[in-house]
Design a protein around this nucleic acid. Structure first.
Lengths: 108, 108
DNA sequence: TTCGTTATTAGCTTGTTAGCTAACCTCCAA
DNA sequence: TTGGAGGTTAGCTAACAAGCTAATAACGAA
């Protein structure tokens, strides 16, 4: 389910975007993440499931805790590629190692 | 005026993302846009309304036709800003003037 | 005016999503 | 092996979103 639409659907919810921003500072446990919001832990858990399903976060288990971390490249590649197609004049994707061939540069 | 969430919600639908891509080539009438899809014209009309509500497209009327065009900066600013916050190492926003930033809309 | 074209709005149906509470699972310590 | 802490899953409700057809509005030409 790691298609482009799953990423954009995941980004459509403000809570999920906030979670991604919060994870920018490093991995966090599910409880720590939930602690930053007023909605219930199960609701946060499902948001995390959506983000994970989109490939935007990864999980690591330690004892009975689950730590979530950002998968930056997934976000950058998927959204960045779209931006590059629709408004290439305004956004520049930084080169990545093994960048997928959707590069519209002349040398190919 | 359209907030950040309205933009990401608009982008969540693949038909709407395709419309934005199609408009990359220049303005198109509603009928021309609808002609590229198999879904009904009223459905396309509503998609256009969503995109317009998010500020991602603009309309121009000529006789009984309505031409739609991309508002590139709206997409670049809104999405690009988010990308810059969450994965600044991977994306570079090209310089703009008057780029203010503040949207912490979340259920937190 | 009347007609055809272009496009939107209204109203309905169906499926999805976000929230909740309650129940369940897993791990560890004692 | 029991208990508590950390998380998720199940089941429900309410709201939203996307599709359709039918009806309506706006415009130009005859």
């Amino acid at each position: 389910m790691a298609d482009e639409t799953s990423v954009f659907k995941a980004l459509a919810d403000p809570t999920r975007r906030q979670i991604l921003q919060d994870l920018r500072g490093g991995e966090m446990s599910a409880g720590d993440i939930a602690g930053r919001f007023t909605i219930s832990a199960p609701s946060i858990s499902r948001h995390l499931g959506v983000l994970k399903g989109a490939g935007l976060i990864a999980e690591r288990r330690d004892a009975n805790r689950i730590y979530y971390s950002l998968v930056e490249e997934r976000l950058a590649v998927c959204v960045g590629r779209f931006l590059s197609v629709v408004c290439p004049e305004q956004v520049v994707m930084r080169r990545r190692r093994g960048a997928a061939a959707s590069d519209r540069s002349s040398t190919r």
